[in-house]
């Protein structure tokens, strides 16, 4: 394994800020011959640590494999475990000092600020190092997510077959929104590098069981696309995800602002009309809303932060029946 610094800039203290990547080569690529390349990116949002741990699991496995089964490597594997190192060190979604969302800085077409310049160089490095990329995220500070892959509708045909090999519970094909245009994955897909977006767990925490599930899925993906050969050191069965389209996703939103108290569990099958929890008024001691599911389905997102405003997402589910039927 090689660790390279792909980008470096100095902080006011004189300490360099460095973005590093690990590269695992195979004999063929070491000989300068073309091979398939895959990249794993984590830590664009510095408070999403599930991805860092998944990258760690990948790195440890690949380092062991290199020692024991070097012949298993058929392609090049690049891991960017902390793509936004300053934000990771401070545990913040936004890049500190600049208050910029690194995953809304791609494709701007210019490099007017340091974060845009970093995004531009990082993008170019990933694009040139990948035939396939996986960008790993952990939702936000409020929502806990079952391991899933999200795909913008226009890339459904090319990405869904790949996403289905990743051992996740769900593949969510969703409509395009303007906000995606400045993300890493969207721009990679536009540049003809298939890029999957993993969402798993929640910010500021590590869920080892989810991370292990995604890690195994990514190993399987590498085997599936011919970058790794199967080996006897890691055998496992792969879960086939449920693929859901926009009409097959139900959303439960708060009708009142208050504290949301619930007993929902990820993966739980719920029935329409069943109680999801209560929104309470902590000052008056009243229940403002008895929250009930407006759908039947399997929960893949639940709200973990109890402070909610009207309109806040409380849960999402893969519906038993598509909406409108």
């Amino acid at each position: 394994m090689q660790i390279q610094t792909l980008l470096q800039y100095q902080s006011p203290l004189g300490v360099p800020v460095e973005i590093k990547k690990q590269t695992f080569n195979c004999a063929r690529s070491a000989a300068g011959r073309p091979v398939k390349k895959i990249s794993f990116v984590a830590g664009l949002h510095g408070d999403e640590w599930e991805g860092l741990y998944i990258c760690h699991l990948l790195s440890r496995y690949l380092q062991d494999l290199k020692t024991t089964h070097a012949e298993s490597f058929l392609g090049e594997i690049n891991i960017y475990p902390a793509a936004n190192p300053q934000a990771v060190c401070e545990g913040t979604r936004l890049t500190p000092f600049f208050s910029v969302d690194a995953n809304r800085s791609f494709g701007a077409g210019g490099a007017d600020s340091l974060p845009e310049y970093v995004a531009s160089d990082l993008f170019e490095d990933i694009r040139s190092s990948s035939d396939l990329a996986v960008d790993i995220h952990a939702s936000n500070q409020r929502l806990l997510e079952l391991p899933q892959i999200r795909i913008v509708e226009e890339f459904d045909l090319s990405l869904t077959p790949l996403a289905s090999e990743c051992n996740v519970d769900l593949v969510w094909v969703h409509p395009m929104a303007g906000v995606f245009r400045s993300t890493l994955a969207y721009n990679l897909n536009k540049a003809r590098v298939p890029a999957l977006v993993v969402e798993t767990g929640i910010c500021l925490r590590i869920h080892p069981e989810f991370c292990r599930q995604v890690f195994l899925g990514l190993v399987h993906l590498m085997r599936h696309v011919g970058i790794l050969k199967g080996d006897d050191s890691l055998e496992f069965s792969v879960k086939k995800p449920r693929v859901v389209y926009p009409r097959e996703v139900g959303s439960l939103q708060a009708k009142k602002s208050g504290l949301f108290v619930h007993q929902m569990k990820l993966g739980q099958n719920v029935q329409e009309g069943e109680k999801a929890g209560e929104i309470i008024d902590p000052i008056q001691g009243r229940v403002l809303e008895e929250v009930r599911f407006p759908f039947s389905g399997m929960l893949f997102t639940v709200c973990e932060n109890p402070v909610v405003y009207e309109g806040a997402p409380l849960a999402r589910a893969a519906l038993d029946q598509p909406a409108g039927k």
Binding site: K256, S257, G258, L259, D281, I283, V308, Y309, E310
Partner: peptide, 10 residues
């Protein structure tokens, strides 16, 4: 007034 939002404390 064109919109009213309520805080979690009411």
């Amino acid at each position: 007034q064109i919109l009213s939002l309520t805080t979690p404390l009411g």
